[in-house]
């Protein structure tokens, strides 16, 4: 891989390479659902560690809630990567959300604080009622 490409990389500005920018990103809770289905298969260390990790850091456990969160966030003009960072970290305030996903405020998208706040509220509601 090219050294230049690596230097450019910065997730805060959504510079993660075209291939990954277009790829489907997975929240930890989604990965958990996928890996659990494969649990009986041949195990190796990368799989084991990933499964342990996503189980520990899944904000939503219930498959319905996982689907609802993706649906909700999909309505907010977010890049896949941004959507998954929000779904993984579940920031509580607008300020925190912007610190976690700085790109949310750039590129002239219509994300005023009010819209972000509503999004965070809806996320915590899903969590509350899962």
């Amino acid at each position: 891989m090219s050294a230049a490409g690596e230097e450019e990389e910065n997730a805060a500005d959504l510079k993660i390479g075209d291939e990954f920018l277009k790829a489907k990103c997975l929240m930890n809770c989604e990965v958990s659902l996928i890996l659990e289905r494969k649990y009986d298969q041949l195990q190796q260390i990368v799989f084991e560690k990933s499964l342990q990790y996503v189980k520990r850091f899944s904000r939503y456990k219930n498959p319905d809630a996982v689907r609802q969160v993706r649906e909700l966030l999909s309505g907010y003009q977010l890049a896949e990567f941004e959507l998954c960072v929000l779904g993984n970290l579940c920031p509580e305030t607008v300020e925190e959300a912007i610190a976690m996903v700085p790109s949310i405020k750039s590129r002239g998208r219509v994300h005023d604080d009010e819209a972000i706040e509503k999004m965070l509220n809806d996320m915590s509601l899903i969590k509350k009622f899962e």
Partner: peptide, 15 residues
């Protein structure tokens, strides 16, 4: 496949 790829600038939780 499911891959895990860390990026510079990414914020995540860890143990």
């Amino acid at each position: 496949c499911v891959v895990f790829r860390p990026f510079k600038g990414e914020i995540l939780e860890a143990v």
